[in-house]
């Protein structure tokens, strides 16, 4: 058979394309693998949520208390970069008029002025960050609603940071390791340069039957964590007996962090 160079190139091209089908064949060739199961001692819920009682925090907590922040950042090896520009934070405080922008008036701000409000990822029921992520590197766990980060998959496009209306996401602009000022928690990984991170509602602690580190660290019990699907849970009881606020409810994201003021 006569074949021109052109035809030869065409056929090689098609063959090269065919090679890309190999992974598909691999999937079908897989055998039964041993099973992976949930930790038996794990705390389970269908709809995790947090209630932040700011009143308790201010009235019973000591001035300038940062127990929840320190506990979280130590447990998760969160670095302290030391610049506002590259700041990485999972839980932090800001003023009322910043956490609830547009809700302030000149009279209530006077009462709330200078008061720290705790902010963290809201683990929204309709999370925009999950909607925009092009690789499902951030995703909502179907079983309990935690908005998780898959650091192995994140390509660092930062679309989620543009999507999040709560400023809950931080990007690792540089290698974070040299900036971990707390003692390294050897049981939890660090992050690397180029990925986005945020609060994970302590998914790794829930799996071991522990409450989130911030909840555990708060000595005055201002932070409560529980399952909204369970009518007897501590969060449901608090929501039933108190007036609570959520951040930017008009955006339809359905935040799962509630505030008692």
């Amino acid at each position: 058979m006569e074949t021109s160079r052109r035809n030869f190139l065409k056929i090689s091209g098609v063959c090269a394309l065919g090679l890309t089908a190999l992974p598909v064949a691999d999937v079908f060739g897989e055998s039964d693998l041993p099973k992976a199961i949930k930790n038996p001692q794990a705390l389970t819920g269908q709809h995790w949520a947090m209630v932040v009682d700011m009143k308790k925090c201010w009235e019973k907590g000591k001035e300038g208390c940062k127990d929840c922040i320190l506990a979280c950042h130590a447990v998760h090896n969160v670095p302290d970069i030391g610049s506002i520009k590259e700041e990485i934070k999972w839980i932090w405080t800001n003023h009322y008029e910043n956490v609830f922008p547009g809700q302030e008036n000149e009279y209530n701000v006077k009462n709330l002025e200078g008061r720290p409000f705790i902010a963290l990822c809201n683990h929204c029921t309709n999370p925009p960050c999950v909607r925009v992520c092009p690789t499902q590197a951030t995703f909502k766990r179907p079983e309990d609603g935690i908005v998780m980060m898959d650091f192995h998959r994140c390509i660092g496009c930062r679309y989620c940071m543009a999507g999040c209306p709560y400023g809950a996401r931080s990007f690792n602009w540089r290698d974070p390791r040299p900036f971990i000022k707390t003692e390294l928690n050897m049981r939890f990984p660090t992050r690397e340069r180029g990925v986005v991170e945020k609060c994970n509602f302590c998914a790794e602690r829930l799996a071991e039957g522990l409450l989130p580190a911030c909840v555990e660290a708060c000595k005055v019990g201002a932070l409560s964590f529980g399952d909204l699907a369970d009518p007897n849970s501590v969060v449901r009881k608090l929501l039933a007996s108190h007036f609570t606020m959520r951040r930017k409810p008009e955006l339809g994201t359905q935040p799962n962090v509630y505030y008692i003021v």
């Binding site: 590197a137 994140c154 390509i155 660092g156 496009c157 930062r158």
Partner: peptide, 16 residues
Amino acid sequence: DLGKPMRLLNVLLYPT
């Protein structure tokens, strides 16, 4: 602009 350019093909690997 990507933080992890070598993972670029994740966009094809996990089409979303």
